[in-house]
Each structure stands twice: as structure tokens, then as C-alpha cells.
């Protein structure tokens, strides 16, 4: 088996809270608080969680839009060597930028309105290699065809395109350098329902064709279920559960995963049914609860939950490895879908 393309170990990102004229730190927002996960070659890992759980911060740390506070992000380069993206100098990171790309959430904000589509898609190519204008045109046209846009539109500006088309432009730009690893940060959540499926299908096809791995960050469990091979569930800066997609959805081993799954609206028309949901709202990452940070909302919580340290451990189920952070997982009979 080929070694994983990305290994994240103990990743932390704290944002200091500063006060006063001298800006002394009075606390930390623990956006990401020590997480571990791996992404294999050609694998899509879904990262789900509610807003503020640190899933986007994780993505931003990997591409170094943010500098991690601690931890390791080992990326296997095309020369089969691991480099640590967490500590590498930004000036030394340039050769690896072409191998890691990102597709953003808002197709309206992530395209420069004053550049034509051709310039937007050609920009990364121009940074990394020298081509004359005609060659660039051909490359852009080919990319546009590949993502389902008509090449003759390359002279247009972003405002002339719909949300779904703009997202295709964002995808074409990310693919321009043939990356090996792509982070999709809520890439379909701002699109209309009829367009979401189109883009998701496109991402799946491109993954095979370009031989890529994805980190698919989303809050929408149904989209994650469709595209991911494995899913990691995050809550207040920590990963609570990791498992293969069907395993996680059918046999969750963490009460938070169960609560998330039960909360999703389904296409069942019955007004008399009330959703089984959990009380309260996501805890503050500034002062996360002691022990398991989910215990104040968890209906299965015991006194032990507030005390015991929380970490992922492996549970073998059948052939696959299922990781959970719940110490009571074997006593609970959690329901999946």
C-alpha cells in the first residue's frame, strides 16, 4: 500500500485574545486543539461539524493561510518525500503550492471581478511556468471544457456567470496546476440544490481523472456522505469520530455523531413527529468544557465524562478501523441512518 499523502498529527491553532494597549494575551480561542488524521492516496476524507468547530481553520492551516500553533502536517511530495507543512518557511513552500490547491465556499468572493475568466484560470500557470499567450489560451480552453464551461466564454468577466458556473471557474483554477491534493472548503454549500449535485458529480469525476485526494470540508452531512470515503466528525476543535462513510452513518460510535445524524431534515412528511435533538448549543472554544467537551449536551453523559481526558482510540469493527473519542461507546446503542 502507498503511504498516506497527508498525515496530520497533534495540530493546534490558537488565536490569542489580546487586551489593553500593550496587547497582553488574556486567553486563547482554541479553534483547533490537537487533531490527528491521515488522508490516503486517491481518498476523499470528509470533515464535518457545526460552525465554529475548527474545520475551516484546519484546512487553512494545511495550505498555510494560517500558521499552526503546534503540531505536524506531513505532506508526501511528488518525489515521495515527506515535508512538514506546519514548520516550513513560506518562501520554501512555493514548489509544493502547485501540488496542494483549494476550492473555496463563496464563488462570488473568490474570483477577482476585474479579471477575465482566462486571466483567473491562467494566473497559477503563469506563476509556475513560462508559456506564450497562445499556449495559455489552449490550456485554459482545455480546463474550461473539462469542468463543463464553454471555452468561448473565457473573455468574459465573473459577473456574467451564475453561481454554479463561477464555482466551475474556481475548480478549473484549482486544477490548472494538476494538484495531487485539493481542499474543498464548503465548496457546494452556497449553491442551489439542483446545482449542488452537478458540482459534486464533477468533483468525483475529476478526482479519478486527475488522480487527486480530497479533504472535503462541509457542514452538510448528505453531501459529505455522497463524496467521502472516510468521514471525520469535529466538535470544538477536536475530532470525535473517524470511520468509513457507510460505517459512520450506519453505526455511529459517538453520541455527538448520533445527534448530528438525527437532526438532519429528511424527506418524510409527518408534522406530528418531533426531532430527537440535543439541547443547548456548541460550546465556546475559548473555555471548552472539561473532559469531553460534548458532555454538557450529551444525554448519555456520566460524572466520568467531565473528568476523563478525551482522545481518539481505535475500535475494530469488521475489517475497517473505526476511531471514537467516547469512553462509553461500547455501553451505548447509538442509532445511525
Amino acid at each position: 500500500m502507498i503511504a498516506p499523502i497527508l498525515k496530520v498529527k497533534g495540530l493546534q491553532k490558537y488565536f490569542p485574545i489580546e487586551k489593553g494597549f500593550v496587547k497582553h494575551t488574556v486567553g486563547n480561542v482554541k479553534a483547533v486543539d490537537g487533531i490527528d488524521f491521515e488522508i490516503n492516496d486517491m481518498e476523499t476524507v470528509g470533515l464535518v461539524g457545526e460552525s465554529g468547530c475548527g474545520k475551516s481553520t484546519t484546512g487553512n492551516c494545511i495550505v498555510r493561510l494560517l500558521d499552526p500553533t503546534a503540531g505536524e502536517i506531513s505532506f508526501r511530495t511528488s518525489e515521495d518525500q515527506y515535508i512538514d507543512l506546519a514548520t516550513i518557511k513560506l518562501s520554501e513552500m512555493k514548489p509544493y503550492r502547485s501540488q496542494i490547491q483549494m476550492i473555496f465556499q463563496d464563488p462570488y468572493a473568490s474570483l477577482n471581478p476585474r479579471m477575465t475568466i482566462r486571466d483567473i484560470i491562467a494566473e497559477p500557470i503563469k506563476i509556475f511556468s513560462k508559456h506564450n499567450s497562445a499556449e495559455l489560451d489552449d490550456m485554459v480552453a482545455e480546463l474550461m471544457r473539462r469542468v463543463g464551461l464553454r471555452p468561448e466564454y473565457m473573455v468574459r468577466y465573473p459577473h456574467a456567470f451564475s453561481g454554479g458556473q463561477r464555482q466551475r471557474v474556481g475548480i478549473a483554477r484549482a486544477l490548472a496546476l494538476h494538484p495531487r491534493f485539493v481542499i474543498c472548503d464548503e465548496s457546494i454549500s452556497s449553491l442551489d440544490v439542483s446545482v449542488q449535485a452537478q458540482i459534486l458529480g464533477l468533483l468525483e469525476d475529476l478526482k479519478e481523472e486527475f488522480h487527486m485526494s480530497y479533504l472535503f470540508i462541509a457542514h452538510d452531512l448528505s453531501a459529505v456522505k455522497h463524496i467521502s470515503d472516510r468521514v471525520a466528525v469535529m466538535y470544538v476543535g477536536k475530532i470525535f469520530e473517524v470511520a468509513e462513510t457507510n460505517e459512520l452513518f450506519e453505526h455511529p460510535l459517538h453520541p455527538y455523531t448520533e445527534a448530528l445524524l438525527l437532526s438532519v431534515p429528511r424527506l418524510v412528511a409527518d408534522k406530528s413527529v418531533r426531532k430527537e435533538t440535543i439541547a443547548g448549543e456548541v460550546a465556546s472554544p475559548t473555555h471548552p468544557p472539561s473532559g469531553c467537551s460534548f458532555h454538557p449536551r450529551c444525554k448519555y453523559a456520566t460524572a466520568e465524562c467531565a473528568l476523563s481526558d478525551q482522545h481518539l482510540f481505535s475500535v475494530k469493527t469488521g475489517g475497517s478501523i473505526h476511531l471514537t473519542a467516547c469512553i462509553h461507546y461500547d455501553k451505548l446503542h447509538l442509532r445511525g441512518i
Binding site: D192, S194, V195, A197, K225, S228, V264, L267
Partner: peptide
């Protein structure tokens, strides 16, 4: 009908072939 077919649902089996509506609104 097309809309219902294109909705992503948590109850779907992974790997269900996605149906979608061509074009956009």
C-alpha cells in the same frame, strides 16, 4: 421530479449515481 431526484440525502447509500438538472436557473 428533477428537484427531488437531485437532492442529496443522508439516507442515500454512498455511491448512488447523482441525478441533476442540466444548466442553472
Amino acid at each position: 421530479r428533477d428537484l427531488f431526484r437531485s437532492i442529496l440525502q443522508v439516507t442515500d447509500q454512498k455511491g448512488r449515481k447523482l441525478a441533476f438538472i442540466e444548466g442553472s436557473v
